[in-house]
């Protein structure tokens, strides 16, 4: 089974056109990091999205476990944990699928959200009720988390308290987390900036310690 994933690892490396990359996270060949560019013509355009991949023992007869490392504002992706709701990662998995084809499927999931089968109910509600506002947030998230180009006109400068609070929600951060670091004596906007930059998610995927955050805040 390892041979299979290795084959596709090489396949992805050789394939320059799809821009899909797969890298080792640690020594284990069963824990990988995939990444792909946001699809054109979507709010995710220009972003660079990273996916945590865990290959189960019975791969390819059981599906690979994937979740987004990069925060994504999408109805089928949990904004908190990065968990992905996609049929081929569950019961529609086929042993013929590879890491590359699965990542391509993820990419196309970004193109065509399924708000009727949501992973993140809040986001899905946002998507169905006001598509424009959803797109704005998705573009904003792509900019701050996935290094996207950002919205066309830039007019956001966190100043007043109320705006800052909006920004916490806008950036998908937990108010409690922001408050925690703010209570250490850092300015709110700085905390938001750092947490955003470090892709902080509480007991998060990237396993950032509080010390690391504080270190970053002190810079």
């Amino acid at each position: 089974m390892v041979a299979n994933s290795t084959v596709w690892h090489i396949d992805c490396k050789n394939d320059k056109t799809s821009n899909i990359r797969i890298d080792l996270i640690d020594e284990s060949p069963f824990h990988l990091k995939g990444s792909f560019p946001g699809p054109e013509g979507t709010p995710y355009q220009g972003g660079h999205f990273e996916v945590d991949i865990v290959i189960p023992e019975s791969y390819p007869f059981q599906p690979v476990k994937m979740k987004f490392i990069t925060k994504v504002y999408h109805p089928n992706v949990s904004s908190a944990s990065g968990a992905i709701c996609l049929d081929i990662l569950k019961d529609a998995w086929s042993p013929v699928l590879t890491l590359k084809s699965t990542l391509i499927s993820l990419q196309s999931l970004l193109c065509s959200p399924e708000p009727n089968d949501p992973q993140d109910a809040e986001v899905a509600k946002h998507y169905t009720t006001s598509k424009n506002s959803f797109d704005d947030t998705a573009v904003y998230w792509t900019q701050i988390y996935a290094g996207g180009p950002g919205p066309k006109e830039k007019g956001q400068n966190a100043g007043s308290k109320s705006e800052a609070r909006d920004e916490v929600a806008m950036a998908g951060l937990e108010k409690a987390h922001v408050d925690k670091f703010e209570s250490l004596g850092f300015s709110r906007s700085k905390v938001i900036d750092v947490l955003r930059r470090l892709n902080y998610r509480g007991a998060n995927v990237a396993k950032l310690t509080d010390d690391r955050i504080v270190e970053e805040l002190l810079k």
Binding site: F61, Q62, I88, S94, P95, L97
Partner: peptide, 19 residues
């Protein structure tokens, strides 16, 4: 084996994607 043992599935689909 994986379907029967791990998933207790009695309707096992063809291995091809989408089949």
């Amino acid at each position: 084996s994986s379907k029967i043992r791990d998933e207790a599935e009695h309707a096992i689909r063809c291995m091809a994607e989408g089949c």
